[in-house]
Nucleic acid binder design. Structure first.
Lengths: 201, 201
DNA sequence: GTCTATACACAGATAGAC
DNA sequence: GTCTATCTGTGTATAGAC
């Protein structure tokens, strides 16, 4: 009867940690890394700041944990996709990232902050996730190019970056602020400009 | 003989102010608004921080001044363009903004910081510039659509935002970090994906 | 591990002499 | 208007009791 008790406590801790990450993730999406304060995260979760620091040794570690969670989510999503053409897979994933962004669930880290960059690059869980996602997408990109579905002039890496960039595309929030379109319409528009291009066909 | 003396002093002041804005502009491009410190700007210009505050009442006003300068630059550039088709004008301007970004001369403000937003919206010089640029581009977009050059499914405003977004496209810096391509190639790639789209034609 | 209270650092802004 | 020196607020991080 000792093991279950320990396990229960561990579950509670894990649950609290998840709650912290969830909150941090949301705030990162709303305000970005620099503007988000640890006080805010702790208050929003309903715990003291010092308690939060028992779980995560620094603000950057907290942000990294949020990114790891995002990567896991992406891996799960990609892993559960039904079979379809490579091009269709890419479109589906691109749409999904934009939905996350419009729902305010896409943590937005500055690509400029170097200490944060270092933390992320040093984080094995994050890098493993990133690499696996990139490999999966990369394979689809090359397959779609082989099938003549994607512009062969573009290097696969450029296509990959372009898809990743949809996750932090300011066009999404600008159009949302305009209030002229529903979320679904906005995503259709950006999907169209991304894959079909601005020039008429 | 009094007027020239005053004018000379005013010129010196103006020159110093330009130097401050120039430096701020560069630092804004490098590190973003939050990460840039006023101490840094002052030190980089070679003046005391207090002196800088005689020119600009706050950090946000300084950033706003940098944006006003950028708008003026854009207006000048657009005004001096040779006559060509509307579509060609849009391509030229898009390419120019990306060149600025790659040269580190494109101040990058977070779209999230609300106090800065407020300052910019309240700034007549900035808003006038933004509106004029948007009007010029908007007219070209509509003309290009009327000529069947731009995808008619896309609202003009979505096209405009998509072009503006090229000025802060992370794909540019990612490709540059990769070190596999020259700046000119990078711009060609992003121009291609932007106008031609990812999908093969 | 959680809390209250506090240390520490840094950045925006200002005072006051010149 | 420019400087040195300083104030002030705020945000990350920690000490120490429980």
């Amino acid at each position: 009867m000792l093991q279950p008790k320990v396990s229960f406590k561990a579950q509670m801790l894990q649950a609290r940690e998840d709650a912290i990450i969830q909150t941090a993730s949301r705030l990162l999406a709303e305000k970005g890394f620099e503007a988000m304060t640890v006080d805010e995260v702790a208050a929003s979760v309903g715990i003291a700041k010092a308690s939060l620091y028992k779980h995560f040794p620094s603000k950057e570690d907290l942000a990294a944990a949020a990114m790891v969670q995002l990567m896991r989510r992406a891996q799960d999503y990609i892993g559960a996709l039904p079979a379809q053409s490579a091009m269709a897979q890419l479109r589906t994933v691109a749409r999904w990232t934009m939905e996350l962004k419009l729902k305010g669930e896409m943590p937005n880290l500055p690509s400029q902050n170097s200490t944060l960059r270092a933390k992320l690059i040093a984080d094995k869980a994050y890098m493993d996730g990133l690499i696996e996602v990139s490999d999966r997408l990369g394979a689809w990109i090359e397959a779609a190019q082989a099938q003549g579905q994607i512009n062969p002039q573009l290097p696969a890496i450029a296509v990959l970056y372009t898809l990743y960039a949809r996750a932090c595309d300011p066009v999404l929030e600008f159009l949302k602020m305009g209030g002229q379109h529903e979320d679904a319409q906005i995503i259709d528009l950006v999907m169209c400009s991304c894959f079909e291009g601005l020039a008429a066909r």
